[in-house]
Design a protein around this nucleic acid. Sequence first.
DNA 1: CAGTTGCTGTGATTTCTGTCACATTGTGAG
DNA 2: CTCACAATGTGACAGAAATCACAGCAACTG
Lengths: 205, 205
Amino acid sequence: MDWKKLFPQFEPELIGLIEKNAVERVFNAGDVIMRTGQYIKSTVLVMEGRIKIYRENNEGGEFLMYYLGPGDACAISMICAIQSQTSEIMAQAEEYTEVLMIPIQLMDDMMNKFKTWYQFVIQTYRSRFDELLAVVDNIAFRNMDERLEFYLKRHAGRTSKKLIELSHQQIADDLNSSREVISRLLKKMEQRNLVKLHRNMIELV
Amino acid sequence: MDWKKLFPQFEPELIGLIEKNAVERVFNAGDVIMRTGQYIKSTVLVMEGRIKIYRENNEGGEFLMYYLGPGDACAISMICAIQSQTSEIMAQAEEYTEVLMIPIQLMDDMMNKFKTWYQFVIQTYRSRFDELLAVVDNIAFRNMDERLEFYLKRHAGRTSKKLIELSHQQIADDLNSSREVISRLLKKMEQRNLVKLHRNMIELV
DNA sequence: CAGTTGCTGTGATTTCTGTCACATTGTGAG
DNA sequence: CTCACAATGTGACAGAAATCACAGCAACTG
């Protein structure tokens, strides 16, 4: 595994420590990686794939917060790991995904010894906090049409493709909306020449 | 100032360092402490009073995220301070407020030297992240009536009073709603015997 | 006390979104 | 090809909330 390329800032000693202690795990598309209320015992580094971090409410509704990709770490797993607390979110693999699980016992040590790790943790907090702020902005101030555009752009940005392979139902779930609403809004976007609609796929133009 | 009582976990050496370097600042009700886009040069510890952390959008709407009280620290100022970045939020004193401003230059040093500081920072991140999660839950899954109840309870919890001195307009602003909607919902709550309404004041029962 | 100002109550209307019902279309299995 | 099923399109309706219009009421000012 050449996961070190994803974290070029880490010093060799830190990489050695991680390699010696971390466990590699693999998930397939749809696998649930972390569940609301679950006890956390490791910090997660993403090597490959794409993890969806979302919130679930008791009535079956769900709400996408953000994605983690290669080189990202789960901020929540870091916080919870350090304090040995439970998580309040769901994490699910969107595609084939490989992660490194670092036992929480190492966290304190790594924070103290390695400046690059400490900075990486801070950077991770900052990024996730910002993403969460963007999410709050969207649901607080924007209507569904704008939220949908934001969603599609973010999705395209991640995969850097012009093609988004999602059904309307999946999008509706992520936005905690309903399929009909999404279908209608997408049709309007098509009429405005922003997208082209295909089966199970949306093309940005 | 006996601010040390608010942070009993800090070791004497850390307290000494803070006392030597931090600047005390005072704000009156309504003073803006931090503005969107403003450059951050200090980490803020709250000694007394109450600070409202909220988001503003370009069309004049605002949206309350959470409050900071005595013993709290501003997570955003910590993150931004460490990375010398700008903030994306507004902070405003809700009442007479005293804070300690710790220059960012000290942050790295304190994180390395003092385990209690490091743990305090982590604890702060965790708390704010959780609060933000609760906010997301509310706007994503709840209607205005439930959000209003949550808002009132949180407000009462903070001040540990049964009396909430706010106009309907202020509440509407915090929830990014309109006065009429809030008035109507409060009336309904009064009919359900959850509150009593007075001028500029709401009484929880 | 009269006048002004700000807070609250309430109806009418509109927009956005969610829900139900059902039609249509694409795709793969047999 | 035909059937079955999943994805999509669309109309009708319902409910939440924003907006507009205006009335009543409390509190302060001079």
